[in-house]
Amino acid sequence: MRVAIIQFLGTNCDFDCKYACDCMGIESEFVWHDEGELKNFDCVILPGGFSYGDYLRSGALAKFSSIMNAVKSFAKYGGYVLGICNGFQILTESGLLTGTLLKNTNLKFIHKDVYLKVENSVCGFAQDIEKKVLKMPIAHGEGNYFCSVDQLKYLEDNNMIVLRYSSKDGSVEDEFNLNGSLGNIAGICNEKGNVFGLMPHPERAVGDLGHDGEEIWKSLLK
C-alpha cells in the first residue's frame, strides 16, 4: 500500500496524516497541489486544514487545483480516496461525494472528542468495524452535513452512510449531534465505497494518542 498525501496551500493536517501512516507502518508521500498525475499510489488522502483560507466556502477553491483532476480520475478507476475534515469538504465541493457541509448550527468552531457509530456500509475503509463505536476529535467550523431528501434516500438505499455522531454506547440521538448534521452524519462514502469523507480526525487518535483512529487506518493495510 502506497499513500499519497495531498498538500494544498493552507493544508495543516498533512504532517499529522503522515504521522498516522508512519505509526501504522503505511508507506506515504506528500504530493503538491499543482501535480497533474498520481502515479503508483493505492490510496490518496486529502488532509484537513484551511485550503486557500476557506474564506469563500470550505473547499470551494481547492477543487480547481490541478491535482483534483488527477484525484477524480484516480477515484473513477477505483482508487481509494480518504478526505478528512477539509478533505471531506473538498470531496463534496468536487462532486466526488454527495451533499455539502454547512456552518455548524451554533456558528462556532467546535473542537471536542466525539463518539462515532460505525454503520453497515459499502465503505472500503470501514469494513470489519461495523457497529463499533469510535472516539476521536472533531475540529471544524463547517461540519454540518446537509443534502436533499432525495439525496439522503440515495445515501441510505445504497448503504453510503458510514459514521454517525452517537453516545458512548452507540445510540444516535440529537444531543450527540454537535454541529447540526442531517441524521447525525459524520462520514459518508460514494456508491462504490472507494471514496470516503469524514469530519472527525482519525489521525489524531493513533499510537500514544489513542487507538480508535487506527481502526480506519488499518483498512489501508489490507
Binding site: N12, C13, F15, D16, Y19, A20, G48, K108, F109, I110, H111, K112, P137, A139, H201, E203, R204, V206, L209
Partner: peptide
C-alpha cells in the same frame, strides 16, 4: 476553549 483546535499537530 472548545473553539480552539488544541490537538492539531498530534
Amino acid at each position: 476553549y472548545e473553539q480552539y483546535d488544541s490537538t492539531v499537530q498530534t
